[in-house]
Design a protein around this nucleic acid. Structure first.
Length: 521
DNA sequence: TCAGCTACCACTTTTGAACCGC
DNA sequence: AGCGGTTCAAAAGTGGTAGCTG
């Protein structure tokens, strides 16, 4: 049914080649401005990038190019508003990253998800103390090459596989006030990487043997809905570039991980595993390695930390006065400058479903009555409803119009825009859901942005030339630019400081926007 | 044939409930 | 009864490795 569209996309260089897989585009996904922005910044570096990366192969092609100037960390303008030039970011565990980057950082990816080590840990400054911010992270391809480890170095082994759709990892403390974010370093230690294209846990999906660059986005927005037209401040740190692998290739990297990751202590020279191995006759080769347990440098945030559990965010307000006494969860606390660092952990995060407790969901369309919708309603049933609605309202080949944000009816399932077929779609879904259904591609409707244009936008812009991802994004912005009244006015600040209750907690993993977005989320 | 992937292993750290004393 | 500290078991996170797969 959608093969033609896939071929169409491929002919324009906008769809993955190779066997059909899970299509990244989600009907009802992010609005054009956010997609546009994220797509745009896939191709441009903002901040702190050296003119040449110490990481072996640099950034070839049209992917992450070194900037012409390295003066600031800040991203240039974006469709939905202007980023705040006062906002700065600094990589906290830079020394550790530099050590890994020297040899070419590798990150293990597994089917069930693996944490990053080192973790991305940054500190922010220049935020408005009383404004609410979301802090997000995504990981984008650093280039369009596939690599292999040959001899003792990484070499290009061909063209990259198509990148799976970007998933935005929302920091579990989001939203929090600027004061709260600036009080402690922001750690992304709970983010997980996977190579499972069907992952339903919200982990970030990567391809093995490909090079990636993490990016941080700081967005002034009081809630998820506001994210869609808020200004993004995007930062990245070139030393956090890494290669995704399913098994370590470079023994130097392995040794650095063992020496610095507390969970790998058992593999250190004095660890029991090593002792056993030695007694068994196989001795590790660590002679040329630089780091030893004794001179372990700046261990990562989880390494040397002693945990101080503060009951932080599970209850109550986020008033500025409150924040004085209550540091944000998961934000690392400098117990003593120059001394050990103490991480303040998040309260236990609930398993999926990701959605907050039942809320009154109000339609943005006034005529639609308010109803109580349980966010715990299974995504499958939501999608089934969407499918039924789609079948009723759509004649298959036609492509429904993409609603403007102010036209979205939050209650009635938005007619999903066509999606490319997914032979593996039925995996994990109820049998009643047909394979190849359009629209949402996962049981949990993650907050997605796509590196590809939606078929709808393509249909509206047939004049686009091949591979104009940025042009297409610009076209999308032109077509679906948000009315100015939907944007936050210049100098707009959150009024949350006057809001007595904290919004529902955000799941630490990639967050979900259901087909029906709760207006008061 | 082999590079890459997966499942399992033994180990360490983290987490949270249970317990205890004040 | 409530609070804070300690203990302990389960869960989660590590790299290594044998076997599988395309």
């Amino acid at each position: 049914m959608y093969e033609e569209e896939l071929l169409y996309l491929r002919s324009r260089g906008m769809a993955p080649t190779g066997p059909l897989g899970l299509h990244p585009y989600l009907g009802g996904g992010l609005p054009a401005n956010l997609t546009d922005h994220l797509e745009k910044y896939r191709f441009g570096f903002h901040g702190g990038v050296p003119t040449h990366s110490p990481f072996g192969h640099g950034f070839p092609g049209d992917y992450l190019k070194p900037p012409s100037q390295c003066g600031g960390f800040h991203a240039p303008g974006l469709p939905g508003g202007k980023p705040d030039p006062r906002i700065k970011a600094r990589l906290e565990n830079e020394n550790l990253w530099n050590q890994f980057n020297k040899f070419g950082t590798e990150m293990i990816i597994t089917k069930l998800g693996r944490r990053m080590f080192p973790t991305v840990k940054m500190s922010a400054s220049g935020l408005e103390p009383n404004t609410k911010y979301f802090v997000l992270m995504d990981i984008v391809p650093a280039d369009d090459s596939r690599y292999k480890f040959q001899g003792k170095e990484w070499v290009v082994a061909g063209k990259a596989e198509p990148h799976m759709p970007g998933r935005l990892y929302i920091h579990p403390d989001s939203p929090a006030s600027g004061a709260q974010w600036m009080r402690h370093p922001i750690s992304f230690q709970k983010l997980k990487l996977t190579n499972n294209n069907l992952d339903q846990q919200g982990h970030i999906i990567l391809n093995s043997m490909h090079k990636y660059q993490p990016r941080i986005h700081i967005v002034a927005a009081p809630d998820l809905v506001s994210l869609h037209w808020a200004a993004f401040n995007t930062f990245n740190f070139p030393q956090t570039c890494f290669l995704a692998v399913t098994a370590y290739q470079n023994e130097r990297i392995t040794q650095l991980k063992i020496d610095n990751n507390p969970f790998a202590k058992g593999f250190r020279e004095n660890g029991q595993l090593r002792s056993k191995k030695r007694s068994g006759g196989t001795s590790p080769q660590t002679g040329e390695l630089t780091a030893t347990p004794e001179k372990t440098i700046e261990a990562d945030d989880t390494t040397l930390d002693k945990r101080a559990r503060l009951n932080s965010v599970d209850s109550g307000d986020l008033d500025a006065s409150d924040m004085e006494d209550r540091p944000a969860s998961s934000m690392s606390v400098e117990k003593d400058p120059g001394d050990e660092k103490v991480d303040v952990e998040s309260p236990p995060t609930p398993p999926p479903p990701f959605l907050p407790p039942p809320q009154i969901i109000k339609s943005e369309v006034e005529e639609t009555p308010i109803s109580l919708v349980s966010p715990l309603m299974s995504a499958a049933s939501m999608m089934a409803a969407a499918v039924a609605e789609t079948r009723k309202t759509l004649s298959p080949p036609s492509i429904p119009p993409e609603p403007r944000p102010h036209e979205v009816n939050m209650l009635s399932p938005a007619a999903p825009r066509p999606c490319l077929p997914s032979p593996t779609y039925s995996t994990g879904l109820p049998g009643s859901i047909p394979t190849g259904m359009p629209g949402g591609s996962l049981p949990y409707p993650y907050l997605y942005y796509s590196h590809m244009m939606s078929p709808y936008l393509l249909s509206r812009a047939p004049h686009l030339t091949a591979s104009p991802l940025d042009k297409a994004a610009a076209a999308a912005r032109d077509m679906y630019g948000y009315p100015t009244y939907l944007r936050s006015p210049p100098g707009h600040h959150s009024s949350l400081s006057a809001t007595p209750s904290r919004p529902a907690p955000i799941h630490p993993y990639s967050y979900a926007l259901p087909p029906q977005v709760p207006a008061n989320l």
